[in-house]
């Protein structure tokens, strides 16, 4: 049994705050849990808070991109908040720029972004 990351529901938004160094299976479980919870709750947004996350490697990076894509297909928007500068620098050098993932510097800004649907970028074809 691996641990699971709690998914909180606040109004219309699902909030995940990653607090510990996650092993790969826990990361995959989180991706599945989020998809199920979006459908079960009809949430319109997902916020993934990575303020406490010290590294994002290709595995976690791929999970963030996949979660953003899955939630979009389920009519919810994902915002990743709190990325540390060193993590951003490392991700770009690793070759992962997470182009399809919306980000905000703080949780507050991320929630704000989801509250204003007109700020969504035009859908890609």
């Amino acid at each position: 049994m691996t641990e699971r990351v709690p998914v909180l529901k606040i109004g219309d938004v699902l909030l995940v705050s990653i607090q510990v160094d996650l092993e790969d299976q826990t990361v995959l479980d989180l991706q599945d849990d989020l998809a199920a919870r979006i459908v079960a709750t009809g949430a319109s947004g997902v916020v993934i808070d990575i303020t406490a996350v010290e590294i994002v490697d290709s595995f976690v990076g791929r999970m963030l991109a996949t979660t953003a894509a899955i939630s979009r297909m389920l009519d919810a928007e994902t915002v990743v908040v709190g990325m540390r500068p060193a993590v951003a620098i490392t991700l770009v050098e690793l070759g992962l720029s997470l182009g399809g993932v919306r980000t905000a510097l703080t949780l507050e800004k991320g929630l704000d972004m989801l509250a204003r649907p007109d700020s969504r970028p035009p859908a890609k074809p």
Binding site: D24, E54, I55, V56, D57, S58, F59, R84, P85, A86, V87, I89, T90, E93, L94
Partner: peptide
């Protein structure tokens, strides 16, 4: 430095996997 720590740990994570 913090950036170098992050880079090295990220590389180690990739290689360990």
């Amino acid at each position: 430095s913090l950036v170098d720590q992050t880079k090295l740990v990220t590389a180690a994570s990739e290689l360990a996997r």
